[in-house]
Design a protein around this nucleic acid. Structure first.
Length: 210
DNA sequence: GTCATGATGGTCT
DNA sequence: GACCATCATGACG
């Protein structure tokens, strides 16, 4: 199982891995129940040469150490009063990652609403929102492998996007070298994509082919 | 429904 | 002491 994850998260450009992550399912088995959702939005961070990456110019500290770990492991970090969740990709020592920015709840919606104290699309349409909705509120899982973990990604059961939209990443320094690079990917029309305009939402199919 | 603003906590120099 | 891969709110149209 571990081998399957390592294979999926290596061997192709990180942008290609990010695209193929759309429609896969994230699942977390928390103490109060299981929550899950389909990935509808993510961003690629390309490591030492990416001005928006935590590892830009080879920066390496205890804080971001897990970004340098095995492919298919968890990079869980804090930004202001919130937690965000990256999947580490590429061989160990190559600090690239994919930030999950939006999921469409598929299981444990009531639990998510409790965690978020909110309902509807606002529950999971942002990187810190989805982490909170799943029920994660610490960095305990930082550095652990996804394979066999209580926080994991299901690579076998997935939905297929009708169309994938590409654009500049959110919240990064636009003036930086790679600030405008089109390394954000999302399912066109899905209402759980962060910042999705209401008129752009496809409320019939949510942007899926199946 | 769109936009600007302030709160927020930990890390790094 | 500055910097942030953010979020919720409240003002406007």
């Amino acid at each position: 199982m571990l081998a399957k994850y390592q294979e999926f998260f290596t061997g192709r450009p990180t942008t290609a891995i990010a695209r193929s992550l759309l429609g896969k399912q994230v699942r977390y088995q928390g103490p109060d129940g299981t929550t899950a959702g389909y990935i509808v939005e993510c961003e690629a961070y390309l490591g030492e040469n990416d001005s928006a990456s935590h590892a830009f110019n080879g920066r390496r500290t205890d804080y971001s150490e897990s970004l340098y770990g095995q492919p298919g492991s968890i990079y869980l970090y804090q930004i202001r009063a919130h937690y965000c969740f990256d999947i580490v990709v590429q061989p160990a020592g190559e600090p690239q990652g994919i930030l999950l920015r939006g999921i469409e709840p598929s299981r444990g919606q009531e639990l998510m609403a409790q965690h978020r104290k909110m309902t509807g699309f606002n529950m999971t349409n942002g990187p810190a929102k989805l982490v909170q909705a799943l029920g994660i509120h610490s960095r305990k899982l930082d550095g652990q492998p996804l394979a066999g973990n209580r926080l994991t990604v299901d690579l076998d059961q997935f939905k297929i996007p009708r169309e994938i939209v590409t654009g500049p990443r959110v919240g990064v320094n636009l003036a930086g070298k790679d600030g405008q690079k089109p390394w954000r990917f999302y399912v066109a029309g899905n209402p759980y994509v962060s910042g999705m305009r209401k008129r752009a939402m496809d409320l019939t199919s949510y942007g899926w082919r199946n």
